[in-house]
Amino acid sequence: MLLGARCVLTASHLTRRFGDRVAVGDVSFELAPGQIFALLGPNGAGKTTTLRMLAGLIRPTSGSIHLGGEILTPQNAPRLRSRIGFLTETPGLWDRLSVRRNLLVYARLHGLPAPDRSVDEALDAFDMRDRARDAAAQLSKGLKQRVALARTLLHRPDVILLDEPTAGLDPESAREVRELVLRLRSERRTILVSTHNLDEVERVANRVAILRSRLVAVDTPAALRARLFGARVRVVLAQQAGPLARVLADAGFSDITADGSSLSVGVDDASVAAPRIVRRLVEAGADIQSVAAEEPPLEQVYLRLLEDEVRQEPPTTHGSSRS
């Protein structure tokens, strides 16, 4: 956990029920400035409900949200919402209005002192100046998402909540969104992104939370990997790896798997063990092509955590038709 004073946003024991169904149960986490926090989970896991609670759109059944040290209540929600930028799952633009008009309305709703200038700056920042007069309906899906992002950031919020920002985008548009998110992190903005795209999380997130109505795990991607799979060193050889596995076993390594010409070795610390492994293999006459700390993809971590969660879970009313 982070120190409370450094946190921009704190969710404490958030629970949200819809009737008997628990959409989000006892979820707690903290977000610090300049952090990208990824919320992962299957459909119906409660990601959107969590984001809506954080945005002050729906109230938690129990638990609390602190934004910059101030507790979020229905009374102060309209004011605190000006410190939050929420990119909803769909762009939600007014199709008949121009891109400029769409942004201008939001600039005025946020009470920006110079709305026209703010819109011009946003159009420049998102490279949309030449499409400013076009009706939103004329834009491609990627461009609509870009306008929605511009709208989300128009009032320079401290906390940015992104609900599946790259869903349905082509690779180029998705990369633009990722680059933008990284740029925002460098501006010390706090970003919470809900996504199914594990590759995206791998590239941008500092911390990951896996949600399945309740929090399954929260940590850095590296720590989650280490927790589940431990540290491993992968060695690719010029010859068959089988006979050389014996050499490493004799050297005291116990968790060794050989697959064709590669060896995977379980270790306590890859940076300490790798030189020892290389030395023993070279001494045994091995021709080594590459050595690397083995990192299972985040997808493997995610699936493993969810599988463990399903195995441990007693029959409850968790799960939903809509998160």
Binding site: P78, I84, T88, Y106
Partner: peptide, 14 residues
């Protein structure tokens, strides 16, 4: 229906 209500409600609008 146009899915524009949620972004609108996420502003300080009462």
């Amino acid at each position: 229906q146009a899915r524009s209500l949620e972004p609108l409600l996420a502003t300080p609008l009462t």
